[in-house]
Nucleic acid binder design. Structure first.
Lengths: 252, 252
DNA sequence: CGCTGCCTTGATCTTCTTCAAAACGTGTGG
DNA sequence: CCACACGTTTTGAAGAAGATCAAGGCAGCG
């Protein structure tokens, strides 16, 4: 009964190394950290960044690589992954343009703790961590912004810990989907569509469960009319009902 | 066979509101954020902090309270908890003196997302978030330190997400114990003793499992000689073996 | 002593993973 | 345009892991 169209996702195509100087300036000025800086400074900062394009599934850096750079997503989506020794992967986050990854501070650790991978065609800007530190030292407002986004990420991560600790698979999926939709989604007739090709496996790695379990839950939600989902995409149809499931208030 | 002494923990007793001005200055100067500040500035900063003592299990703030202050643990241990709607509690972290909690930035959110509770007799200093922001603005080195510790906490939290997503209860306990021991522990003849009265329930809420399951795993580890544990305490005897269990390399 | 919590241990039951097979979509090449 | 082949998804059934329930033991304390 539910019509499963072929992918309703927008085709995003980011040519490798496509970012022109103007585009870069534009992107950097969009990034929250640089708001309020004089135009000249922005241009100088821009010069410190290196850009690079990535193919879908191409790795930006691996766990264990020397952590020398800080990255900003310029275009596309980037996935952060933890590999376990048993070979399972855990997806920590999907990043959208403007978000930071890589190494933030002059850390004691000098190896990346996670792997960063382009989920779509993507472009990222990066800067050496010493240079970034220099910027933070010079521009206090920037440091404050970095603190804000990092603190927010920390809270999100802790919320995830809470979900994983105390909730069922059904609840965890009902938690993940709206979160992704809010962050990466776009309003559509079908509902809020997650702008990212997401396999059952991708969702499973986010929710800490198996692809099969995700499939069952997704089917159930679809039958209940809470979501609309196809081969590699999901749209949220009834956010309140999902909220109820997530909280344990809802049906089954 | 294993001797279960009565609590080998040091009796820590922190009188409410005991912190003298000198002690406060000392504590603040110990806190990594204030390293390298001129002594005069430190005294001025000190004046902006309010101190308060707490009884064990006394709540410092509740989830949902308006998030107006930033706290620094001065003495004792503080526990950060997530409450779920079903009534389960999840322990996010135990904090030791020098660590921050409360609200960091000028956040969009204005309610605490977690509950902070004294685990032992404790003393905490606090400052209004606007004032704290003022300090960060003035002292760039302080902002950098805050970024460092926050980024470190984020990585820890993400590591926890990974553990919860992909590992068994046995592995999770083998992960939690050394982490607590390293952070809060002290070297003893029995092994590295966790300086905190920890019930099975406390451990369960940290590892995302039930007290009964923790009890079984703890008994098993004790029988294998990996740890020494009593009524409300644990000491690590064989860190390497625990490491192996945590990684799935070790024996069952 | 006897009481009160905490801890342990066993038994049962639910949930979820795993394995396996079939159905489906998608893209390909005839 | 159709048929095929591949990877993904769905679904079922078996099995494992862990939660829950319940009872008994142990320590500390009045």
């Amino acid at each position: 009964m539910p019509i499963r169209r072929s992918t309703p996702l927008d085709d995003e195509w980011v040519e490798s190394h496509m970012c022109s100087v103007d585009l870069r300036l534009h992107i950097l000025s969009q990034v929250p950290f640089f708001c309020g800086l004089p135009q000249g400074d922005l241009a100088k900062i821009n010069g410190q960044f290196i850009e690079r394009g990535y193919e879908p599934h191409q790795t930006i850096y691996y766990t264990g690589d020397p952590a020398r750079r800080l990255y900003v997503v310029a275009d596309g989506r980037v996935k952060l992954i933890h590999h376990t020794l048993e070979g399972k992967d855990v997806t920590l986050d999907f990043l959208q343009p403007g978000e930071l990854f890589g190494t933030l501070g002059l850390e004691t650790e000098d190896a990346y703790r996670e792997t960063a991978q382009a989920q779509t065609h993507a472009c990222a800007l990066s800067i050496g961590r010493q240079e970034f530190r220099g910027l933070l030292n010079r521009y206090a407002s920037m440091a404050l912004k970095v603190i804000d986004v990092t603190a927010e990420r920390l809270r999100d991560s802790q919320e995830m810990v809470s979900q994983l600790s105390a909730h069922s698979v059904e609840q965890r999926v009902a938690f993940i989907l709206p979160r992704l939709a809010e962050k990466l989604g776009e309003e559509r007739p079908i509902g809020r569509l997650i702008q990212l090709p997401l396999s059952r496996r991708d969702l499973a790695e986010m929710a800490g469960t198996s692809p099969e379990s995700v499939s069952r839950v997704v089917s159930q939600f679809r039958d209940q009319g809470l979501i609309e989902a196809g081969r590699r995409w999901v749209a949220i149809r009834d956010a309140e009902a999902l909220q109820a499931v997530k909280a344990g208030t809802g049906p089954s």
